[in-house]
Design a protein around this nucleic acid. Structure first.
Lengths: 252, 252
DNA sequence: CACGATTTGTTCGTATGTATT
DNA sequence: AAATACATACGAACAAATCGT
């Protein structure tokens, strides 16, 4: 009777053996593990089989591979904790988004502004698609790129919104200073997806790396939609925390 | 002068060509695309090169492969929209979690109850690790498995919490009925990660598939921690929406 | 139900390209 | 510049799952 715990395939056996050594502390984070050729000899398998095992370990974030250098046990990356907290100075007790209090200084760098007749954004904003512009930005914290953002906004209502954008500014600050408009959230949505080649190269991750995606619509004081935003964040870098400080909130 | 837009590597060229055909509508969702051998012949590359291209498309969710059958254009899976909304019947205006209103009937199936001295959970709950139990469950909606959950809870304070668990119940309902305790959220956190082999087999996804992970701590009426929960959800199935209905919420 | 044909999954061997040291 | 190590690519064979006859 065969042991069903033991996977039949060689590359999985190798992957489990390597994982056990890493998690058992035999190889510590940052350390280089033996070369593919050495592992192939040790386990008496083809080098391609070792590569398949290492590929699995890489996509679950256990190792990093560097061409010409070697394969290294991945260093645990400290998460950027982005908080949404109920705020002391808001007397009505609603949940106010206080972005990035746990991360260092955040830069939002303008990448591009282009007309983009996105049908979905048009529907969400109740604006003719032909009037929409897409504003692409990068979010960095402590020199570390962690997200790419796309905003869709009505170019007729907010002409030149991106002109003279400074790296220290955010979209919310620009709306306030240029148009005297305060943007409030209507809704925000969290998803997870794999990085396609385009996003992967922008964020500096491998194709298929997990992304935390947050999108949402903002509105002004009168309830009129202002912009639709999609943020694609590195899953290995960012976590979003919702704090319920003021009042008990039922979990059911 | 070579066109830098054109990737040099064959497998990427093949991946882009296949992606263009799918997104261009040449092959529709559910349709079987040509076999690896046929594509290898068409592009004049080795079959392993075609496989590498298809692997990329599978990782980003564009195709499904079935051994013995073929490679199919992936059907867009409708997202289960899980909402957290401010609730009408809560007079103090706080954000109350109303789980799963947009999905069908949710079953939480008990998998296992085991003593588990998890140090992190112990710290979060302010309970000696030796008293902790881990309760593993599955979440299903309309016969579709979409999440695996782990709860850590004080076995001394809530003895036999999982005894006689019915599929229609949830942890919150059991705490209410068995111990007359209402669980409120202290905080909830959203992350994204890749599925390791253990989670992948539980959720029926491939290793490396993106997961939306929500963890958090709940407390009772007196502010005392009740449990720590980790939900690992299929990224291709679930989206979490936070609705701000009652009051404007600043985006900054 | 059996069986063969088809198709993807795994593994070997070998060679060459490219980035790092 | 040379050696090292991962990345890409080719060819071949067998295993395992699926499907139609």
């Amino acid at each position: 009777m065969p042991d069903s715990r033991e996977p039949a395939y060689r590359y999985r056996q190798v992957a489990e053996a390597l994982r056990d050594r890493i998690q058992g502390g035999e190889w510590v984070p940052g350390e280089r593990i033996p070369t593919e050729a050495a592992l192939a000899a040790e386990f008496d398998v083809n080098r391609l089989t070792v590569r398949q095992a290492i590929t699995q370990l890489r996509i679950i974030g256990l190792v990093d591979t560097r061409q010409g250098s070697g394969t290294y046990v991945a260093n645990p990356v400290p998460l950027l904790e982005v908080s949404m907290a109920s705020d002391d100075d808001v007397d009505h007790g609603s949940l106010r988004a206080t972005a990035h209090p746990a991360v260092g200084h955040v830069h939002e760098r303008l990448l591009s502004v282009t007309p983009d007749a996105d049908a979905q954004a048009a529907a969400l904003l109740s604006v003719p698609a032909s009037r929409l512009f897409r504003i692409a930005t990068l979010l960095e914290s402590d020199e570390t790129l962690y997200a790419v953002c796309d905003y869709w906004i009505d170019g007729d209502r907010f002409p030149g919104i991106a002109d003279g954008w400074d790296d220290g500014e955010t979209m919310g600050m620009r709306l306030q200073s240029e148009f005297d408009v305060t943007a409030y959230y209507s809704w925000r949505r969290f998803r997870a997806d794999a990085a396609d080649p385009a996003i992967a190269s922008q964020l500096g991750v491998t194709v298929g790396a997990p992304l935390l995606i947050r999108d949402g619509v903002s509105h002004d004081e009168h309830g009129s939609p202002v912009y639709y935003v999609v943020r694609r964040m590195r899953g290995d870098r960012v976590a979003y925390t919702v704090n319920y400080l003021d009042r008990p909130t039922r979990d059911r």
